[in-house]
């Protein structure tokens, strides 16, 4: 293992992980510790929650999870139902969730999955995620044409392009992988987690894919990619209305009804 390989694939993974976890925690803590304005009132209001009928913290959590996992607000009943955007957002996010889940296999070599099944599942999910990602990238480029508004900042292009690149590199690596790659990758991954580093598989596409992921992990907390962590600190989604039935009971008692 030469020094460059050692730095990029043995040292950098730890750095990336620390930055990812530390940076995201820092962002969430910054949001959570920002006060609610003078006197704890958001510019004079005790509550900002918008979703009517939200009665408990549990229902708020359910609502937030539905937004994060089903993206149900996107095709919501308004003008020009945008099913194309919803479908690509859904497939892209779930593709990424599944691909991340599949990668956990690297640390679970005891989980027996047939080589062919692994290949088909990974390639199919990856291809769908890549297609959806490219659609979203095209949509972003076309946003100005759709709405006549220069909406995109550099970050907007970088984030989506980077994820698409990671998926493309992963697919190419998998398609062109030599037979022993998975075994070598498992050894490298478990080596990292057990703090007994093993050299990574010597395969250029593997290097490229992993490096792109490592850099992305560092980029994530400081960009718009931190968006999933913003949900629990949004006072508009996460809050509690008073129990109207309880108010009704009090009033009826007061009136002797």
């Amino acid at each position: 293992m030469n020094a460059v390989i050692y730095a990029l694939f043995i040292v950098l993974p730890y750095v990336s992980l620390v930055v990812l976890i530390g940076g995201s925690t820092y962002r969430v803590l910054r949001w959570a510790t920002t006060p609610k304005g003078g006197g704890g009132l958001y510019l004079g209001l005790y509550r900002l929650v918008n979703r009517a009928g939200q009665r408990s913290y549990l229902s708020a959590v359910g609502h937030i999870l539905a937004r994060m996992l089903a993206f149900h607000t996107i095709p919501k009943n308004s003008y020009g139902r945008d099913y194309g955007t919803w479908l690509s957002v859904f497939l892209f996010h779930w593709g990424v969730f599944l691909l991340i889940a599949f990668h956990l296999h690297l640390w679970m070599p005891w989980l027996r999955v047939g080589a062919e099944a692994m290949y088909v599942m990974g390639m199919a999910t990856g291809t769908i995620a890549l297609g959806a990602g490219l659609f979203l990238l095209a949509r972003r480029v076309g946003l100005r044409r759709i709405y006549g508004l220069a909406l995109n900042a550099l970050d907007d292009y970088v984030a989506i392009t980077w994820v698409v690149l990671i998926i493309a590199l992963g697919l190419a690596m998998r398609a062109l992988a030599p037979p022993g790659l998975f075994g070598e990758a498992v050894a490298w991954a478990t080596g990292l987690s057990s703090l007994h580093p093993e050299p990574p598989p010597a395969f250029p596409l593997f290097y490229a894919h992993v490096l792109a992921v490592e850099l992305f992990m560092i980029y994530l907390p400081f960009s718009k990619m931190a968006h999933p962590f913003t949900f629990p600190v949004n006072p508009v989604l996460y809050g509690k209305f008073e129990d109207v039935d309880e108010v009704r009971r009090r009033v009826e008692e007061e009136l002797g009804w």
Partner: peptide
């Protein structure tokens, strides 16, 4: 942004 969580978010 420092004093209003909603605005910062």
């Amino acid at each position: 942004a420092r004093e209003n969580r909603a605005f910062r978010h």
